[in-house]
């Protein structure tokens, strides 16, 4: 078969404008040779595209979806591992950053404790909230002033705490025996305490 002319290739590629197309089709109707050349080119393309009808092992297509689903499962598992492998260094970095940049605990907090106690007692009506805050205050105070887990009666509290003794006992003692309540507080109460502590720390 001789080389296909660019004119025919242009026609087959639909690259001709309307005028060129009309001229080509006029030429085509007048030339048997051009008709044969075009028919041969079209036949060649048809032969190429006929591979779409190639007979294949149909079992392949029957198994395709189950195999793809297995791949999906593998990807899912790999995705979890991948996420975990990403989470570990992130967590490690977060811990390092926390230890490097976390605010250092205030050493002398007696004034803050005092302010906190007063603030809580004067402004918070919820006895649970008061109790939990005082729980922390009491424990920290006892560590600072009385040394560890000593009995309440032997604990020295910061000076100038304006809380009557019976009130202090009734609140702090409850907190002392129920230390875990801070962890069990509802979010709202906990946030309230957190807010108050933050404000006091800023003073």
């Amino acid at each position: 078969m001789k080389k296909i002319s660019d004119e025919i290739l242009k026609y087959l590629s639909d690259m001709m404008n309307d005028r060129e197309k009309r001229e080509f089709e006029n030429k085509l109707s007048a030339s048997a040779e051009l008709k044969t050349e075009l028919a041969e080119a079209e036949q060649m393309l048809n032969d190429l595209s006929a591979i779409n009808d190639t007979a294949v092992n149909e079992q392949y297509f029957a198994n395709l979806l189950p195999r793809a689903r297995m791949k999906m499962e593998q990807k899912k598992k790999f995705g979890i591992v991948k996420k975990m492998s990403f989470a570990v260094p992130v967590l490690a970095s977060a811990i390092i950053v926390f230890f490097l940049f976390a605010p250092k605990p205030v050493q002398d907090i007696s004034e803050q404790h005092q302010a906190l106690v007063n603030d809580v007692l004067e402004n918070v009506n919820d006895t649970d909230v008061v109790r939990k805050v005082l729980d922390d205050v009491y424990l920290e105070s006892s560590m600072m002033y009385g040394g560890g887990n000593e009995m309440l009666g032997e604990t020295e509290l910061p000076e100038n705490i304006t809380v009557s003794e019976d009130k202090l006992f009734s609140i702090v003692d409850l907190a002392y025996t129920d230390y875990s309540t801070l962890q069990n507080l509802p979010d709202e109460d906990f946030n309230e305490i957190y807010e108050k502590l933050s404000k006091i720390t800023l003073q």
Binding site: I4, L9, K10, L12, S13, M15, A41, M44, L48
Partner: peptide
């Protein structure tokens, strides 16, 4: 796309020939 197809067609038909 037409231009690309034209060039592709030319190469393929040349090869087949």
């Amino acid at each position: 796309l037409k231009a690309n197809y034209f060039h592709a067609l030319r190469k393929v038909t040349e090869y087949v020939n």
